[in-house]
Design a protein around this nucleic acid. Structure first.
Length: 832
RNA sequence: GCCCGGGUGGCGAAAUUGGCAGACGCACGGGACUUAAAAUCCCGAGGCCGGCGACGGCCGUGCGGGUUCGAUUCCCGCCCCGGGCACCA
């Protein structure tokens, strides 16, 4: 009879359909819960290899956990709002909703074809009103708490698009759609989330996230950027009569606040420097000077920025009084001072800060030294700032103190005078959530002439996106251009009013979607509190490193905010985080423009889903980047064919190995190898997830099956052979579910491997009775020795010394030293 | 500049506690099967040197040192590649 060939296209589709139809199993309260989550994809059109890797990892884990008896939650959804839909609308004159939903349908079908074991009954699509309604609801709750607010701020503006751009839509200082159009900065009123209120907790709780990669924790610490220092108030003194600032004096503040981490250097201040867009300048400078100040601020993204940029500024004519010395210092404005950090004003201490040094030297400001090295004979650098800790000099009553101690005393001093205080500043800024875009969640507010800003009442949610919108070459009109949407009545006074036309950043959608999976059809609340108590936190989150900062901080922020609102109880959403590596091809990130894309659909057509999934797991450890190898998939295809043919050459029954089974020689070999492989794989799932080595181990096992196959039914009795073959199928199932299910069925067994319990390695079979010991002479392997497994070190030494190879090497000499390690080796040291 | 990864055969990689470096796979070479090819099955293979050969010797995990009987693994100092951040006061 001709052997059945491995033709996955003949059975994968059938199983995929069966699995897609399967009802999700009812929650089993008696089992321990495990929530496995993969980052939800943007429905760009089709799955790409990055998705396949992400989901192959997650699915292997979810499948194995189910076999181990956990009640596994493994959902999937779609991050369906966002700009590409509008881009596509322009290109195809197709409504973003249609385009998005069609993509979702296709990608869902692809995910099913891959056999990813999602609970499709929980699917969430963020662009549907059933979902974004709860974005709006949460937005209103945040507003009530003061966590959502409006503020004027500087934003990226494209004059061609006539809209605000998100930072990531600006590359090299130009608009992503108009490469010849420089992006401008504009001051606009925008909606913000007060994430900074949680900055301290977000930072502190990073320490609790022991199941996260250290790399991601470090990135988040940096991003939040906590600095301990002090705020110090400097009284302002106007310029003399007739000088350039005089006209504006009446509108200037009486004082300026400075943030510094080095209050110990304050006796060395030679100027105060304001950010060019500091609001105080408006009252301090006449119009021409104000324009000059604004011109100092480089447009966003316009090179050069950062440390390479030349420091430029000018004297405002004003002075400020140093509260410690009582002496005035000139007030300047300069391009290197950031408005978004601290107070937007710095005290320039050129002797002890590199930036201030560069700046003051350029403009001829004095450079007084107030910190000297702790070591008496050490010299501070003559032509650079001395930024280390040291001993204070020329600092009045504080002279002679160590800078660490001085900071405490000087902070206390300024606090007692009520001209400053200890404070903590964060690099993290409030999250600007306004987008002037159509394809997003409408922000649920109304502007009324009489009542002002009015939140849309909860019972009127959702504020729906209007469906009939004009689509032209310029794109989809934003909401401001749709009168039917804008014109409404005030919820308070019922008079005509205008709707807010900004939509929300799509990061809002992805900040809480994993709660929605818990009760996707709940219509009383974003999610059911009881379900959240059962399932949260997510036990294992899996996704790309590119979300290490934004998404993962926003999601942590939402969890803390929702906790404070009483919606959930956890402090952190993700217990463990796994960041998978990138797949490159020919050394570069896959992209259409480079023409180096591998399409998962082609791979399925040629090799099937199992081989594709298995290759992606086999090519490298999952956290590491790897370069795609076209022939690699073929190797896994061949391997699965080997398994398939091997399995179907033998029949099967449901009986296990008898408890009193006494293995003969080859049976022992096979049982040992099988159980050793099982032990390795079981351990890998609970530790590093190096599935590449799991598959390698299974390949080794299959090679042993092939070697021993001639003995099947003779030297290896049927019950031993079948036992091992069955275990092989269970071990392979999380990585290649289709072929294992197919074989299982062909054997006539009940269910599929996925419905079986994960087997336990039996130590009776894993134990070796005889082991090989390495014999070294001066650390180099010179012989091998087979000994009974239990042999102790003395026994090994005795047996090693009489070996011919050792005798020859000794040539009559006595070894200087012999190291014998039971179970490992004997090393004989001979000194010449 | 700072932070984080990484560097092992022609290639992807393995070696989980300091104990045989290169498992497993790709590519390659040889053989079996075949009229032939594909598919399949089996065998070989880090480099250099010596030997007809079985085999033997030396070198070898980015580089230089150190600890140790023994180092891919631990310590010190460097080099290279990739990623992130970067005037954050």
């Amino acid at each position: 009879m001709p052997e059945r060939e491995y033709q996955p296209e003949q059975f994968e589709q059938r199983w995929a359909e069966r699995w897609a139809r399967a009802e999700a199993s009812a929650p089993e309260e008696t089992k321990k819960k495990y929530y496995v989550l993969e980052m939800l994809p943007y429905p760009s059109g089709a799955l790409h290899m990055g998705h396949v890797r992400n989901y192959a990892i997650g699915d292997a884990v979810a499948r194995q956990l189910r076999m181990r008896g956990f009640d596994v939650l493994h959902p999937m959804g779609w991050d369906a709002f966002g700009l590409p839909a509008e881009n596509a609308a322009i290109k195809n004159r197709r409504h973003p909703r249609e385009w998005t939903l069609a993509n979702i349908a296709h990608m869902r079908e692809q995910a099913r074809r891959f056999g990813f074991s999602y609970d499709w009954g929980r699917e969430v699509t963020t662009c549907l009103p059933e979902y974004y309604r709860w974005n709006q609801w949460l937005f209103l709750k945040f507003y009530e708490r003061g966590w959502a607010y409006r503020k004027r701020g500087w934003v990226n503006w494209c004059p061609q698009c006539a809209t605000v751009l998100a930072n990531e839509q600006v590359a090299g200082g130009v608009c992503w759609r108009h490469e010849d159009t420089p992006v401008e900065s504009r001051e606009l009123e925008q909606w913000y989330f007060r994430i900074t209120e949680f900055a301290g907790e977000l930072l502190r709780d990073i320490e609790k996230l022991s199941g996260w990669p250290e790399r991601v924790r470090a990135m988040q610490r940096n991003w939040i950027g906590e600095s301990h220092g002090a705020e110090v108030e400097f009284q302002l003194r106007p310029p003399g009569q007739g000088s350039k600032g005089a006209a504006a004096v009446h509108a200037a503040p009486a004082s300026l606040k400075v943030f510094t981490t080095r209050i110990d250097t304050i006796f060395g201040v030679s100027a105060l420097v304001l950010a060019p867009r500091h609001p105080a300048l408006t009252g301090m400078l006449a119009a021409p000077e104000l324009a000059r100040a604004h011109a100092l601020q480089p447009e966003r993204g316009a090179a050069p920025l950062g440390v390479e940029a030349e420091k430029e500024g000018f004297f405002t004519g004003w002075h400020a009084v140093n509260p410690f010395t009582g002496k005035p210092v000139p007030v300047w404005t300069a391009n290197f001072v950031l408005m978004g950090y601290g107070t937007g004003v710095v005290m320039a201490v050129p002797a002890h800060d590199e930036r201030d040094f560069d700046f003051c030297r350029k403009y001829g400001l004095p450079i007084p030294v107030v910190i000297r090295p702790r070591e008496k004979d050490a010299e501070a650098p003559a032509d650079a700032a001395f930024t280390d800790e040291g001993v204070l000099a020329d600092s009045g009553e504080f002279s002679g103190l160590d800078s660490v101690e001085a900071r405490k005393r000087m902070t206390a001093w300024i606090e007692s005078r009520q001209q400053g205080r200890a404070t903590i500043t964060y690099r993290l800024q409030d999250w600007g959530v306004s987008r002037q875009r159509y394809w997003g969640t409408p922000i649920p507010f109304v502007y009324c002439q009489g009542c002002g800003l009015v939140p849309v009442p909860e019972d009127q949610l959702p504020v729906r996106l209007p469906e009939n919108v004009p689509i032209s070459e310029q794109g989809v009109a934003n909401l401001a251009g749709i009168p039917e949407f804008v014109e409404t009545t005030c919820p308070k006074c019922q008079k005509p009013a205008r709707r807010e036309t900004d939509t929300m950043d799509t990061f809002v959608d992805s900040s809480w979607y994993f709660y929605r999976y818990l009760s996707p059809h709940c219509d009383r609340a974003p999610f059911d509190a009881a379900e959240a108590r059962r399932w949260m936190p997510v036990d294992q989150y899996i996704g790309g490193i590119e979300h290490a900062i934004l998404h993962l901080i926003y999601a942590r922020f939402f969890t803390k905010a929702m906790r404070d609102l009483g919606l959930c109880e956890v402090h952190e959403p993700f217990q463990r985080l796994f960041t998978q590596g990138m797949i490159t091809r020919h050394g570069a990130k896959m992209s259409k423009s480079k023409g180096n894309v591998v399409d998962p659909a082609d791979l399925i057509a040629r090799y099937g889903a199992d081989a594709t999934r298995a290759y992606v797991l086999f090519a490298a450890p999952p956290e590491r980047d790897f370069d795609w190898n076209d022939q690699g998939v073929e190797g896994l295809y061949r391997f699965l064919g080997r398994v398939y043919r091997l399995a179907l050459r033998h029949d099967m029954d449901a009986a296990g190995l008898p408890a009193d089974f006494e293995p003969q020689k080859s049976e022992g070999t096979l049982l040992r190898k099988t159980h050793q492989t099982l032990a390795r794989i079981s351990q890998e799932f609970e530790s590093r997830w190096h599935f590449n080595t799991c598959l390698a181990a299974i390949m080794e096992l299959v090679n042993v099956f092939y070697e021993l196959e001639p003995e099947a039914g003779r030297g290896i009795r049927g019950e031993a052979w079948r036992e091992c073959l069955r275990l092989l199928m269970l071990m392979l199932a999380p990585f290649a579910p289709f072929v294992c299910a197919e074989i299982w069925q062909a054997w006539g067994l009940e269910g599929t491997p996925a419905t079986q319990a994960w087997p336990r390695p039996n130590s009776t079979w894993t134990a070796e009775d005889e082991i090989e010991i390495v014999i070294q002479i001066n650390g180099k392997v010179r012989a091998h020795l087979r000994v009974p497994a239990g042999s102790d070190a003395a026994e090994l030494e005795r047996r090693a010394l009489v070996l011919p190879a050792v005798q020859t090497a000794l040539a009559g000499r006595t070894p200087a030293k012999v190291i014998a390690v039971a179970g490992r080796l004997v090393n004989i040291v001979i000194r010449p």
